[in-house]
Design a binder for these strands. Structure first.
Lengths: 252, 252
DNA sequence: CGCGAACTTGACTGTAGTCAACCTGCGTGG
DNA sequence: CCACGCAGGTTGACTACAGTCAAGTTCGCG
């Protein structure tokens, strides 16, 4: 047992199952995917910007950020990914450099060959659908980031991001009062398009509602934080309807 | 022949073919999709925010914007879609309210039932893949919007957007010197997260490189505009490699 | 010809950026 | 065990880009 606790592929399947319906043999096909584990130290790039890959990166432990760079080298994060996320599943169908992946802390990645992902996606339409849907949820988050960065002031932006991560880190469908978020204030600025200095001031002014310290977040007043952060978790869930809607067609 | 010129579904197939390989019978399956045409006047919402749909919207003619709203009603566009685009293909796998769709000018939409899309996606894995890839290209554009809105100043932002649309409106892989872009300066602000007043000043300062007037864009100096706009069209293309990569597996 | 929407311009404001100094906590090595 | 170094955090003073407000002007359409 290389991975203490749970198998990262099982974590990934669980993530998919929260949004899509998969039969046992489909789940097994995913669990049987070939993987190559690689460890990265904090602050290292897992995939360099503009790098083309022939594998996707499953986060086994740790945390990663996807990022882009402007022409003059300014960095902007476009997503955070936690353990169990396939951080760049989308490269399966579009392998061209789609931004970089950066390890926020010591992180173990499982490389999963695109070829293997393609094979099971073709064999099992429900798997292709689950992968597609997973990418769409990521895109829904991205839309929120455009809104966040474009239209909200600093306090709202930071609060919204902290709410998003609290929701996504939750095991149930709710939120986590306390969660690991191993980012510096500089990196928080890369995500919210603020400077480190302004993030610092903003966090201080948010001190009654939430504390970000030593790489972890402690929420003191969820109701107030979501209100201030203009946060509604609806965009994070794929489906509230009956389970059958999670599947294009019953194959049986 | 209801639609003068070309069949909108054919336009959609062409768009897919520019990114994915589809056999004749797969193309025909798409062309056979049932559609319901609906006309919208300029400035009307095609899909209201938070509305759940059971169909996707194919733009037959005109132009639409996808948008989100902050809690206090400030609008932010997150994408523009031109004729031949399935503006919300992603709702097929995630039908929950994923933002609104707004007609920028008089626009004809073909409603395509999710159920029909699901059916052919399940029957033909290559179609599911093409749809998935199409959504990924949209997501790649969205990542650029985060970068644009988050990290670039007003001139660069506007220039970048105008470059994006010039590339996407091109029939070949290049760009269009002159193209229809029926937006007011207010709407340009909704896309770039600027106020109408500042868009106005910015456009004036860009006058040597590009003119935006009467709902159309005229580019005077493409090289300078892309340089100023920090624009590289790479993110718009799905694949530069050999054609076989456009398809997960050969089904034949 | 007249109305309204869109565009234009100027004056002033404000949020966040910049620059710079300093503090704090932690790991390393003398 | 303390000294040092360094990354990250904190604070203050000043700046600037874009927002706001308000008053015109232009354009297109009925």
């Amino acid at each position: 047992m290389i991975y203490p606790g749970s198998n990262p592929l099982q974590l990934f399947v669980n993530r998919l199952l929260s949004r899509s319906a998969l039969a046992m043999r489909e789940q097994e096909a995913i669990l049987d995917l070939p993987t190559q584990p690689i460890d990265f130290l904090a602050r290292r790039d897992i995939v360099k910007i503009d790098e083309d890959t022939d594998y996707a990166c499953l986060v086994a432990s740790g945390m990663v950020a996807r990022f882009g760079l402007t022409g003059d080298g300014v960095r902007q994060f476009t997503a955070f990914h936690i353990a169990g996320d396939m951080a760049d599943l989308h490269t399966t169908v579009r392998p061209l450099g789609s931004g970089g992946l950066h390890a926020l802390c010591d992180t173990t990645i499982l490389r999963v060959p695109h070829r293997a992902i393609r094979t099971i996606a073709t064999r099992f339409p429900a798997i292709a659908e689950a992968f597609w849907r997973d990418c769409i949820v990521d895109a829904a988050i991205l839309m929120q980031w455009v809104l966040n960065v474009g239209r909200r002031d600093a306090r709202t932006r930071v609060a919204h991001l902290l709410c998003e991560m609290a929701s996504r880190c939750a095991d149930d469908g709710e939120f986590r009062q306390h969660y690991a978020f191993p980012v510096t204030q500089e990196q928080l600025g890369d995500a919210t398009a603020l400077t480190a200095v302004h993030v610092n001031r903003t966090l201080k002014s948010l001190g009654d509602l939430v504390t970000v310290k030593h790489g972890s977040v402690q929420i003191h007043d969820w109701a107030a934080l979501t209100r201030l952060g203009d946060f509604d978790a609806a965009y994070l869930v794929a489906d509230t309807g009956p389970a059958r809607q999670r599947r294009l067609l019953d194959v049986e």
